[in-house]
Structure formats: C-alpha cells, structure tokens
Nucleic acid binder design. Structure first.
Lengths: 161, 161
DNA sequence: GCGGGTTTGTTACAGTGTATCACCGCCAGA
DNA sequence: TCTGGCGGTGATACACTGTAACAAACCCGC
C-alpha cells in the first residue's frame, strides 16, 4: 500500500495520474480543464507537499501569470474528486497515490528531512479508531492522521553518508 | 478519558489548569510569567479551539494591547510544556485536558456544530499505528490525529429541538 | 442567437505566522 | 557595585495562507 513499491515509481506516476484524472472526470461528467490539468501535473511532479503559492509560481511564466486563487479553486476541485490531498500540518498538497474507497482512512507519512510524503492505510488503525469514536459517542465525518518523522530512505542515507 | 465526565467540568477546569501549570513550571525551573498565565487562562476558558488572534484580542484592553506575536510566543512555550495543543485542521489552540505521557498519542474530536474539541486516546489505535509505521520503515517523531464530526451532545440536541 | 450554468481572471482583503531589533529585568561573576 | 549575558516582552514589518466579490469568457442545450 505504499507509493514507493518499484522505488522511484513516483515521477513516472505523473502521466498516469493525468490519464486517470481525465478518465475519471469524463466518467463523472466533469470538466478536466487545462488549468486543472496543469495544477494536477504540478502537484504530481513532486512527492513533496507543495504550497498553493509554490504551484502558482511554478505555473506562471513571463506574460502568463497564474494567480493563487485560481490554484486554490483547482485544488478544491481536485480534492473533491479525490485526486489530491491536503496536508493540514503543512498547509500543502500532494497527489493522491491511488483511488481510495470513499471515506477510507488514509495515513500520511511526512519525512522531516527529505520532505517526501508517503501515503498508507491500515484497517487495524481504522478499526481501533472506529471503536474509540463509538465509545465516545462521536459521529465522524472526516478525519486526518499525519505522522512526521524519518522515512526509511533518509535513515539509510544518514547511516552511510 | 474524556474531558466531560462530570459534564460541564470544563469551565471549572481553568483554575485547576493554572495551578497545575504553575507547579509544573516551578518544578522544571521555568518562568510562569503573567503573559503566559493570561494566555493559558484565555485558552482554558473555552472548550472551543481559539485562534491566536482571538486570544490576542481578548487579552487586549483599551490602553493595553497584546500583540499576536506575544501570544504566539506564549503558545509555543505552553505547547512545549504540554499545557496546550494545536489543532492543525483549524489553526487553533485548546488547553490540554490532562498530563499525557510524553509521546502518547492523542485523538482530537472536533464537533462541527458546537465547535467543542474533546480529547481522548486509544491504546488500540496507537498500537495499530505503531505496527503500520514499523511495516513502512518509518520512524515517527510526532503524529496528529484529528476527527471532525458531531459530538453526542449535539446529536442529542438535534433530535429534540 | 439566447439564457443559464460553470470556469477563469482580477482585485482586494482577511487570517495566520515569523523575522528582527530594541528594551527591560534579573542574576552570576569579576 | 558594575557589567555582561540571558530570557522574556514590545513593536514594527513582513511573508505566507486563504477567501470574497465581481466581471469576463466559455460551453452547451434550446
């Protein structure tokens, strides 16, 4: 359930994502406009979480400025469609690695040294959380679980500098 | 493990918190200054999460303005001491309901209708998360788990309007 | 072509957080 | 006692994040 199965599958995920997004939008009768495409591509180009203003800047060219507000709108759309996630602890965005079951719990693993964000899930955690919420009499609508730490690659790198 | 055991114990928690905080600072050889006291009190006065600017405004009086930057510094201090939590999904702060074991996982239950934030924990969830991270080769330093939804009191209230 | 929805551009602004420097109070050490 | 350092605070400025409001462009069916 990780993004890095083939190792460095990340970068080559991008074209895949675009195709997937286009198919999904057609299927749902929604518009996959050039702006939305560009924003998704920008997000998908890195496995680091990127701020909306970073994306705006990256998409801007001399003579063709993309305003942050446009990026936000595109991001809102992409999040609604489940193509992009927001990392609340960073105010930043990452591509969604794979289609989730709607409402499925996702766990974000944020590396504090390389900044990469991996995405995983666990029926175990989810079940435990469900029971805990039940016990507390709390009806959830949305939950976020973000873990900061050191990813395997970075720990490796530190051991052999 | 809830804040609302006695029901409405919240408000009367505040003086308790201040005493606890003062003792804790003395114990650690740190200064529990008037500003820090005021900020903690302001946070503890409500079980809703409050923004730093709200707190600054509340502490300000005609002739005696408290700048947000001062509030942020006090909040940083209080968070380091484990007296206050930050709710990432809201950019807001709540008092810590009880001393946690350092590093113990905390779950925030955020009611979308009344805005109250309850705090709980679960060995179940924590164990599951630990195993998941282990499997992913990820070494955690800090994790946040925030759930938005409807608290029991609000669901009750809706049923009998 | 017309009317109505959606998307985008533009401007302005609100909210959140940090950098920097100056000042104050306290305390250890010469 | 003086002095130098250190932590805390005040104040200003600024960077970053996000939203409101309105106009223009676009698309699509009628």
């Amino acid at each position: 359930m990780h993004r890095h199965e083939g190792h460095d599958a990340c970068r080559s995920d991008a074209p895949d994502m675009l195709a997937r997004a286009e198919a999904l939008c057609r299927e749902r009768g929604l518009q996959f406009t050039p702006l939305r495409r560009d924003v998704l591509e920008a997000v998908a180009e890195s496995d680091k979480a990127q701020g909306a203003y970073d994306i705006a800047e990256r998409l801007s060219a001399p003579g063709k400025r993309v305003a942050p507000v446009s990026v936000y709108r595109a991001l809102d759309f992409l999040m609604e469609q489940g193509l992009v996630h927001r990392i609340a602890s960073r105010n930043a965005f990452i591509p969604c690695a794979h289609g989730h079951a709607p409402g499925e719990g996702v766990i974000f693993l944020i590396c504090r040294s390389c900044g990469a964000v991996d995405e995983t899930s666990s029926a175990d955690v989810e079940g435990g959380l469900e029971r805990t919420l039940e016990r507390a009499g709390f009806t959830p609508t949305h939950s976020i679980l973000e873990v900061e730490g050191d990813c395997g690659a970075c720990r490796e790198r530190e051991r052999t500098p």
